[in-house]
Design a protein around this nucleic acid. Structure first.
Lengths: 154, 154
DNA sequence: TAATTGAGGACTATTCTAGTCCTATTTAAC
DNA sequence: GTTAAATAGGACTAGAATAGTCCTCAATTA
């Protein structure tokens, strides 16, 4: 399974909650009780999102966190990279240092295609999308997806 | 970063090597020295791929492993799920047990959209694609990608 | 029957992740 | 001005997951 860390999952939950009233400033404490996630953990996540400029913060009494942009402009890709760094499936796709395998390394570049596809997918979904209830959309939307990566070669 | 385990990465390297002469039967030992991956590790990976029916095996002297299908028919998705189980980003997307968060769980279904998109991306790339040298394709192919997940809602 | 090779599983060490906690800094309200 | 309410930033710990190794059994061929 391709894994996303729990923290990232929590982050999306927290942000989705914030997106419901997207201009409101909320204290870490408030977010913790609203989402059921422990305060220190929420705090840690908020700091990461702050560094990535997904959130803005106000210190002091009555301070708290708020979304830095409209929910429609916050992509899932940006949330993931805030918590986990660059989006890529393999080590080699990130670090430029050549890998040590004796052969098979021509493959590396091709991972890039896959990474890019996944990145595009995550870039196309925003926080605003996450709050919309799921409808009977599954059969329809699958057919609309069009990813001609492989077909480029043929 | 969305992570794929090292074993999965190795698996793709091994399979790509095998795909170059796709009907040949190769011993684990041979694959280990060809790829530079330690024999016990190669062995472990081959067993997983065998269970997932990506490979077929022959026991005994002159035995070894071979691809169960043509490289064009072995998708990256099938390789990943052979080594890591079902492809999904979050725990909840796999296990049906309701999550314990106090709120925010309407989100779950929406992860499904993202998971499906990624799955489709991985399904569209095969072993055969991985062996083709990377060309000056980046500018062109990015524009061809079309993932209207978000647009479905608008 | 001996040599070669896979099958299956147990086991260990290390790395990574999740989660907690402490102290300093900033701001608002009284 | 002082106190209380918040964030900022980092250090730290326990637990889980991963990578990797090893051992014994089964099957096939020469």
């Amino acid at each position: 399974m391709i894994r996303l860390s729990k923290l990232t999952d929590y982050a999306v939950v927290i942000l989705s909650f914030m997106a419901r009233d997207s201009t409101k400033v909320r204290a870490a404490m408030e977010l913790a009780s609203a989402t059921g996630i422990a305060l220190p953990t929420v705090s840690k996540i908020l700091k990461l999102l702050l560094n990535a400029k997904v959130l803005i913060s106000t210190r002091g009494a009555k301070g708290g966190y708020a979304l830095a942009k409209a929910p429609e402009k916050i992509t899932i890709a940006s949330v993931i990279s805030a918590l986990e760094g660059p989006i890529a499936l393999t080590e080699c796709s990130i670090s430029q240092q050549g890998c040590e395998q004796a052969s098979g390394c021509e493959i590396r570049g091709n991972w890039g295609l896959i990474n890019q596809t996944i990145h595009n997918a995550l870039e196309s979904v925003t926080l605003a999308d996450m709050n919309i209830p799921v409808r009977a959309q599954n059969s329809a939307w699958q057919n609309e997806i069009l990813i001609p990566v492989a077909s480029l070669y043929r």
